[in-house]
């Protein structure tokens, strides 16, 4: 840069202070820390996110499933883990982005020298942490309340899968957050969240649903994640794991691409 900037009055200070890499990293860290603090202090987000999957699992998987030799509790562990990790992605990204666009916070952050990716990384880490808590809670219920026999390998496979499995829903939430705006966001996200869970066979097995709904299922990312979750705990599942993983990656990238394009355009 060979332009000369007249800052003679500020001559005691360096003219263009470089941003050391450690400080950029710190910006990511602080953004993540703030996101986590915010959500820990927001019971209207934390309570439903943690309680719905655990209470449903206790009711339908553990109590009603009693007497099926633990098979129902085992099947529903996969389904409710998938159901559980959809929420932090969809709500943590979708609703918060919609509200922050509406309230002008995003505009302020764009005017500030925040590293653009720090905003997304902060929310992503928060969503993964909440997903980890949900997976841990459900696994504990399965192991210690329903006494589902699970090997260490199965436990760690399911746990890792669910923590990573929040990402497609983060991407979908991000895309929704760029489309919807303001106070109506939670309701609208629920209208996508709940039907999608139902249509992916998370509440009732797909096999008892009408044929066309079964054929529709592969559209939903939650269907693919659920099949992977079933396979992680060695339950019967449809299709190959590789195909499901590729479908989830493709879905994530497509949502991300569309969302970033929209954010560039509308801000």
């Amino acid at each position: 840069m060979n332009t000369h900037i007249d800052l003679s009055i500020l001559s005691e200070r360096p003219q263009v202070a470089p941003m050391p890499r450690a400080r950029v990293f710190n910006a990511y860290l602080q953004e993540t820390r703030s996101e986590i603090l915010r959500y820990l202090r927001t019971p209207s987000f934390m309570l439903p996110t943690l309680l719905f999957p655990t209470v449903f699992y206790l009711m339908f998987g553990v109590l009603l499933g009693h007497g099926s030799g633990g098979q129902q509790a085992r099947y529903m562990l996969a389904a409710y883990s998938t159901f559980g990790v959809m929420a932090p992605g969809l709500f943590g990204f979708g609703v918060s982005l919609a509200l922050e666009r509406d309230g002008g916070l995003l505009t302020l952050k764009r005017a500030l020298p925040m590293p653009p990716a720090a905003y997304l990384v902060g929310k992503m880490v928060m969503a993964m942490l909440v997903a980890a808590v949900i997976a841990a809670l459900l696994l504990s219920l399965a192991l210690f309340v329903a006494h589902v026999p699970l090997s260490a390998a199965q436990v760690s496979r399911l746990f890792a899968l669910e923590v990573a499995g929040v990402l497609p829903f983060c991407a979908l939430g991000l895309l929704l957050g760029t489309i919807i705006k303001g106070q109506g966001a939670p309701g609208l996200v629920n209208m996508i969240y709940l039907p999608m869970a139902f249509l992916s066979g998370l509440w009732f097995p797909l096999s008892i649903m009408p044929k066309f709904l079964q054929q529709l299922a592969p559209i939903w990312p939650s269907y693919h994640l659920n099949q992977l979750a079933l396979s992680a705990i060695d339950m019967p599942h449809a299709g190959s794991g590789l195909v499901h993983a590729v479908a989830l990656c493709a879905f994530t990238l497509a949502c991300l691409w569309l969302a970033v394009r929209r954010l560039r355009r509308i801000g």
């Binding site: 263009v16 202070a17 941003m19 703030s34 603090l37 915010r38 202090r41 927001t42 309230g103 002008g104 916070l105 505009t107 302020l108 005017a111 500030l112 020298p113």
Partner: peptide, 17 residues
């Protein structure tokens, strides 16, 4: 932008922080 500070007219900051 690393040399500027900004105060906008209506930015709702996170209330729980």
């Amino acid at each position: 932008r690393r040399h500027i500070g900004v105060m906008l007219q209506d930015a709702q900051l996170p209330t729980s922080l």
